[in-house]
């Protein structure tokens, strides 16, 4: 039995990234042909670090999340490579996949009610996940571990016999975090884990999510439409627009000096809580509809204040910077401070 990983290592003993995406594309097959939801996304998340994936509705962030869980419907075609602790996720057999889910990658859903069976007490549900993935554990010690997990997320152990509906929204979400950590996963994926919560509960759950995942030595992937939420939790950020990762890098670098005009516009669209009052600028227009083939122009050009002829003629490439930041813009290197 593992007692919780710090850093995962492969057979050769070298460090392995918890999660590595190499040019991952997802297309949904529709009546009108394929619709590309995610286009060539490349990301790396190391054990013990946290990545936020931010974007507005329709940008492909949830599809990307499902691709990481290999939970996409049959009508979706996945290209590229998803590597989970060094193994190609899409090369696994169904049986292997079954072993990998929850013991290597787990999920905190948006609506925790959906994560729990309403007819089974929460303690038992967490214990059954442990038993399923570790046949050597006795049911008694699985229950003890479940109680410990619940305590670690601030739910007193006498609530182990509660049914899901007996918990408040915030408690359910915390119980879902406990469930996600039950089998010592290498990666915890949380898709909009706090959108259903009030502000105060949101802050508490986010803090807890980060603290517990980090304490478990796992990597956290947090998907959210809210840059504010992601900026308070994650060290790394990837900004998605129209299926593309248009900017990524360390959170502080990206926030202090966004290189992509979309990221800049996104930051500028948030009113400041305590800073000087500034006129808010929305982003005119709306994102393009998914296409059947890759565009040969920049997907942000129709809404971009900096768009030039070249943006309409050629798709931009990833422009890298010394600090590890990347932006997919023809003018990424020129718009510094803009």
């Amino acid at each position: 039995m593992r007692s919780g990983p710090a850093v995962r290592q492969d057979d050769a003993g070298t460090d392995v990234d918890a999660l590595r995406l190499d040019a991952v594309s997802v297309a949904y097959l529709t009546q009108h042909g394929p619709a590309i939801a995610v286009n060539s996304a490349s990301l790396v998340v190391r054990a013990g670090s946290s990545l936020g994936i931010v974007g507005e509705s329709g940008c492909g962030k949830t599809t990307l999340g499902l691709a990481l869980l290999r939970l996409l419907p049959e009508t979706a075609r996945v290209d590229g490579r998803v590597e989970l602790v060094g193994r190609d996720l899409y090369a696994l057999t169904e049986h292997e996949l079954h072993r990998v889910r929850w013991s290597q990658i787990s999920h905190v859903p948006q609506n925790a009610m959906a994560a729990f069976n309403p007819l089974i007490r929460i303690g038992k549900q967490i214990a059954s996940a442990i038993l399923l993935h570790d046949p050597e554990v006795t049911s008694r010690s699985a229950m003890a571990r479940a109680a410990g997990l619940l305590t670690s997320v601030g739910i007193s152990s006498d609530r182990i016999t509660a049914y899901p509906h007996e918990l408040s929204g915030g408690m359910k979400q915390r119980a879902a975090i406990a469930l996600a950590l039950a089998c010592h996963p290498a990666v915890v994926l949380a898709d909009e884990p706090t959108t259903a919560l009030d502000v105060v509960a949101q802050a508490t759950v986010l803090q807890l999510l980060r603290a517990r995942v980090m304490a478990a030595g796992a990597a956290l992937v947090l998907i959210s439409h809210d840059l504010g939420v992601v900026s308070e939790v994650c060290e790394q950020v990837a900004v998605m627009y129209a299926g593309r990762v248009v900017e990524r890098g360390a959170m502080s670098d990206v926030m202090d000096q966004p290189r992509h005009p979309y990221t800049r516009a996104l930051v500028g669209a948030y009113p400041s809580l305590t800073g000087p009052r500034q006129t808010l600028e929305g982003i005119p227009g709306s994102p393009p509809a998914p296409e059947s083939t890759s565009r040969n122009w920049c997907e942000f050009a129709p809404r971009c204040p900096l768009a030039q002829q070249i943006c309409w003629e050629r798709a931009p490439e990833d422009v890298g910077f010394d600090n590890g930041q990347m932006a997919r813009c023809h003018f990424a290197a020129e718009t510094v401070g803009g």
């Binding site: 502000v199 802050a203 508490t204 504010g228 900026s231 959170m251 926030m255 948030y270 809580l273 800073g275």
Partner: peptide, 10 residues
């Protein structure tokens, strides 16, 4: 106030 995320003041 403490619970409100602020993009501009991380």
């Amino acid at each position: 106030l403490a619970a409100c995320p602020d993009v501009h003041e991380r």
